[in-house]
């Protein structure tokens, strides 16, 4: 009984601490925005519009649609959703390929010897330099963008998976072997879970790379998308509009990263040393 109350008190104090931390976090954030507002109003630079102007431009740009589209304007459907779709599709394909290939290469004793230097070289190529090649191969459009994203995002996942798969505890290897565990179970229930922390580290890196390459490929050659709108706003000297896209990219980056972190925390809850930092 006392244990239960103790636990409840602890939970409550944790909740209070979390809440006050949350409030403090947002207070600082609001303070920073106020400073930004005051600074831009004082500086009166055309390049740096005050945040209130950016927000009002953004509201008008994104939420001026009819009720049948949930008040989202056409811009959301024409530019933001296609961009997000390409980013996530490229990332998903890179993850599937990377984890699959990485598991195979990590389990094989000589596989990495054959392709290791090749992959190290591929990873070192700045992906935007391959945009012209993908452009002539796939034309202007989603194919080129997804190909660029896959090429950039696959390496962190692949190399981290190889590392993680290789580092499986030798006791687990021997135990599984002595029970004659069938290969599918062995891969799915021993190797991959053991490699998951490493894989997740790769996933996070490759997600931010995907977002960067989405923007780059749209800046260079695209007919729609966030990057395309960003560069055309700059060329038209519409600075508040340009800033709304920059802010949106920041929000997207923050949101996607937080989602992945939440997923990681859920999936890796069983890990003993992860429970401490909650």
């Amino acid at each position: 009984m006392t244990q239960v109350t103790e636990r409840a008190t602890r939970l409550r104090s944790q909740a209070v601490a979390g809440l006050s931390g949350f409030a403090r976090t947002w207070l600082v954030f609001i303070g920073a925005v106020v400073v930004w507002e005051v600074a831009t109003r004082l500086a009166e630079s055309v390049f740096f519009p005050p945040p209130t102007e950016i927000v009002s431009t953004a509201l008008q740009l994104w939420f001026s649609g009819p009720a049948s589209q949930l008040f989202l304007s056409d811009v959301v459907f024409d530019h933001i959703l296609p961009s997000l779709g390409r980013c996530l599709a490229g990332w998903a394909i890179a993850v599937i390929l990377g984890v699959g290939l990485g598991t195979a290469l990590g389990r094989s004793r000589t596989g990495m010897d054959y392709v290791g230097p090749l992959f190290a070289f591929f990873r070192a190529i700045p992906p935007p330099t391959l945009v012209p090649v993908f452009m002539v191969l796939f034309g202007l459009g989603p194919g080129m963008q997804v190909a660029t994203i896959i090429f950039g995002a696959i390496w962190p996942v692949l190399l981290n998976t190889v590392d993680g798969v290789r580092a499986v505890d030798s006791v687990k290897v021997d135990t599984a072997r002595s029970f004659r565990t069938p290969t599918p179970y062995w891969i799915g229930m021993v190797v991959l879970p053991a490699a998951l922390p490493k894989i997740f580290a790769g996933l996070r890196l490759s997600l931010s790379i995907s977002l960067i390459l989405m923007v780059v490929s749209e800046l260079i050659g695209s007919l729609n998308g966030i990057g395309h709108e960003l560069i055309s706003a700059q060329r038209a000297f519409e600075f508040p509009l340009m800033w709304t896209w920059i802010v949106l990219l920041g929000i997207l980056g923050f949101g996607l990263n937080s989602l992945l972190l939440a997923a990681e925390r859920r999936v890796l809850r069983w890990q003993p040393n992860r429970n401490n930092d909650g």
Binding site: W26, V28, S208, V215, G250, G253
Partner: peptide
Amino acid sequence: TRVIVEFLRPIPSVALIPL
């Protein structure tokens, strides 16, 4: 400064190219 850093960091640097 944690919040500010957490909000600045995910802005893809390439989004700042036009600016």
